[in-house]
Design a protein around this nucleic acid. Structure first.
Lengths: 216, 216
DNA sequence: GTCTATAGAGGGATAGAC
DNA sequence: GTCTATCCCTCTATAGAC
């Protein structure tokens, strides 16, 4: 396969799922062995998917025997849940922190830019967050679904505020909310840090697109 | 989990992956047993993913024993490949058939509408097409990647034509191509035929969004 | 807390009868 | 072309030594 491929076509084998987020972000996971397992699991789940990832693979990425995993996590699913929960919380925090401007237009711009940049910068964990939901236990899925609703509500609220004060024109509020989220989320599927624009540049571009979507 | 959920949040267990495309579309797969296996595999792969689907599951959906599968297909992966290949060809044909208008704006509108509606109407097979690429063998992936490049090229060509004749303003051609494709593709992830707009309505909406993206 | 060894279950694919 | 039976492997998780 040629090196020079459009990203759209180059999404199977050989996808670059590189190093992972900033290591600092996982300092709260103690001890270090548990953290190595967690970051190894993020990479493995993002590359191969939850079902195709073996506990042996995760353990070997952490330079441990398969059995050592169970000292730190009771199951493979629990590892997925902790990753998914942390990732969803991080995405919600990013969005909340960006919601500070005075006008709906400025708020939407900042929120879409931040949400998009997060999906690009942390595309590894974002892939797990967005595409491995079905592997969670029903109870664990319920828990992250609550966070997903909160994320959706934040965007819907900004759009509604823009409609209220007359700056946005949105015929279908839930549909437009979904479209705005959709564009950012899909970044996790195709983003390749070796070829694509920086997360910040992409965020700025997508923020513009979102504003055009609501005819601001 | 409450019935009334925003689609964004409702993407794990309980996703509605209903009946499948039109049965007519698979008439070329003969004999009928092979067709039952293929359509069963599409539903199973879309619901659970390739790795989580067992050959026993596929066979039982076709009311057959596990062994009977191997009379019609040499492996589980081959079943995935045939689904993926057919799905990619169908998407390319849909896009090609829609590329008939005179102006770039009308062409883009028709193509995005058709491509989006296809991902909604055939969201089951579209999920397999868009999210199970990594489970293909390297050789089979190479083959569908060719079709993916053709799809991408069709969109890029329309955008380039619009830039040439001055009706579109596109600072980043590959980036905008990807964003237009991205919005349509993500439909396969969240589309729920029991709640969402009809494929045609969604296609019309997304065609408008695409035209705004290129400032037509 | 880490290891080696392994239990116990399940899955892809095949053998051989009909 | 479909079945029953099963091989053989891999995988999650546990047992028990250190």
């Amino acid at each position: 396969m040629a090196k020079r491929l459009l990203s759209f076509a180059n999404l199977g084998h050989g996808v670059n799922v590189s190093a992972v987020t900033s290591p600092l972000a996982w300092e709260h996971v103690q001890p270090a062995a548990a953290r190595r397992l967690l970051t190894g699991a993020i990479e493995a789940f993002a590359e191969r998917g939850f079902q195709a990832t073996t506990t042996r693979d995760i353990a070997s990425r952490a330079d441990m025997s398969p059995a050592a995993l169970y000292v730190h996590y009771p199951s493979k699913e629990r590892l997925l849940f902790e990753i998914s929960l942390y990732g969803h919380r991080a995405a919600l925090e990013i969005l909340t922190a960006a919601d500070t401007a005075d006008t709906p237009a400025d708020r939407l711009r900042a929120m879409v830019a931040a949400f998009t940049a997060w999906h690009a910068e942390h595309h590894t964990i974002a892939r797990v967050v967005q595409y491995e939901l079905a592997a969670l236990s029903p109870e664990h899925f319920t828990e992250v679904a609550t966070i997903r609703r909160a994320i959706s509500s934040l965007i819907e609220k900004v759009l509604a505020d823009g409609v209220s004060n007359g700056t946005f024109t949105v015929p279908d509020l839930p549909g437009t909310t979904l479209a705005v989220l959709s564009l950012s989320i899909d970044v996790a599927r195709w983003y390749d840090p070796t070829r694509r624009p920086s997360p910040e540049a992409l965020g700025a571009t997508y923020a513009d697109l979102a504003l055009r979507m609501v005819q601001a």
